[in-house]
Design a protein around this nucleic acid. Structure first.
Lengths: 224, 224
DNA sequence: TTCAGCCGTTAACCCGCCGTTAACCATCCC
DNA sequence: GGGATGGTTAACGGCGGGTTAACGGCTGAA
């Protein structure tokens, strides 16, 4: 059951939205101004926040920024009457995940809202599989707490595999992705796979980098 | 590795987009008009299509409709200069999955595009018959929960049979499909059928891989 | 500028699995 | 009995995938 918070001072609009969402099976709480919204949002439990850009007492952007500073990464959909690109960019910088310009179709709101809920936290800053973690912001890799050193190519290889995880990536797709179409004409890939294995698997118990014969490679916990 | 198609007649914009997407690790082909776009899209292999609404020779909406009529359900993100609600709704009816109004932030494009790709890849493609399951995305086969290991040829054979299930596939069709017309001149097929039986049937109660004398083979539950 | 160390590419080699092949076996029907 | 159809088995050669080592270029520090 989807559970969202709408912060909106136009009570007519708010009522309409709440009603429509309930019809769609989405629970929707409502805060009528920025301060109330902040309080509700901080109590947590919402999968998505719908914020009006122009709010009394604390506007949508500031509310968004404040939440993000507090470490809250709940997806935020901003509702706005303005349509300028500037607003959009300012929104992205404040940590907004999506936009909807008033007047909007309720149908469209639901679609975007569900997409956000599904996507969860928006831009991923970390990739992981089991106890293996790749931190994209500070460029570190670790497994079970111990740091792992990778060469640039090893890093790219692991990144592609982790983004696809637990799906299999074909040799060809791997090469395309790692070398950007400028693929060396040799067995470079298998050598790098070998080195990557030595780095992330050899020192540990369970191997994560699997060979799927005839298909490619995958990073995932053993499927028994 | 994300692989998308951009259909856009404004070459400057197209260049900018393609370049930006490549930076984000997204492969992006480009078609400059509707007909070219249709052709490229039909060749397939794209996870998302980015269509301009106003295109020479075949506009975005018609292109979208045509693809949907042909059974193609690749997610489509429509790029449009117009911003009226009517257009959006017309778009949703033609089978569009998301919208972006020009001018847009490239950053925003990437976010929406990834959301679409993820929504799609969330649907796991599976083939099955009774308790036998073939997972096409993570390339695994299992029966009643226990994993089954197949050789590449065994995999192709099973895939062909499952796609046809419960119909019978002739030996000739099987050979054509498995070896792509380059059929070995021996009894290879029956040996592979034998191995496949040992893998998917032998350890279990009811045999699924049946011989239909004089006609070929079929995967199905026993018809008595 | 030079040197050292790292990294990526390449080639060579090894191993085990997989596919092909042929030969043999079982069953059915003429 | 013999041919036709389908199942089983084993041998062997090749290839995919793994491992190793050498070489050469780049980079950063002295």
């Amino acid at each position: 059951m989807l559970n969202v918070l709408l912060v909106e001072d136009d009570l007519d609009l708010a009522d309409t939205v709440v009603e429509y969402l309930e019809l769609e099976g989405i629970r929707c709480d409502h805060g009528a101004n920025g301060m109330a919204g902040l309080q509700l949002a901080q109590e947590g439990g919402y999968q998505v926040l719908l914020l009006d850009l122009n709010l009394p007492r604390l506007d949508g952007l500031s509310l968004c920024e404040q939440l993000r500073r507090g470490g809250d990464d709940t997806p935020i959909l901003m509702l706005t009457a303005r349509d300028s690109l500037d607003d959009k960019i300012a929104g992205f910088e404040s940590g907004t995940d999506d936009y909807l310009v008033k007047p909007f179709a309720l149908q469209e709101l639901v679609v975007r809202l569900k997409a956000l809920a599904r996507r969860r936290s928006g831009q991923v800053k970390k990739l992981s599989c089991a106890d293996l973690e790749m931190n994209l912001t500070d460029k570190t890799v670790s497994r079970g707490g111990t740091a792992i050193k990778l060469s640039p190519t090893g890093w790219r290889l692991l990144e592609v595999l982790l983004r696809a995880s637990p799906e299999v990536v074909s040799r060809n797709d791997l090469e395309e992705a790692v070398w950007n179409g400028d693929i060396p004409d040799s067995n470079s890939l298998k050598v790098h796979i070998f080195h990557l294995r030595k780095a992330i698997d050899a020192p540990f118990f369970s191997p994560l980098l699997q060979t799927v014969a005839g298909h490619g490679f995958a990073i995932r916990e053993k499927v028994i």
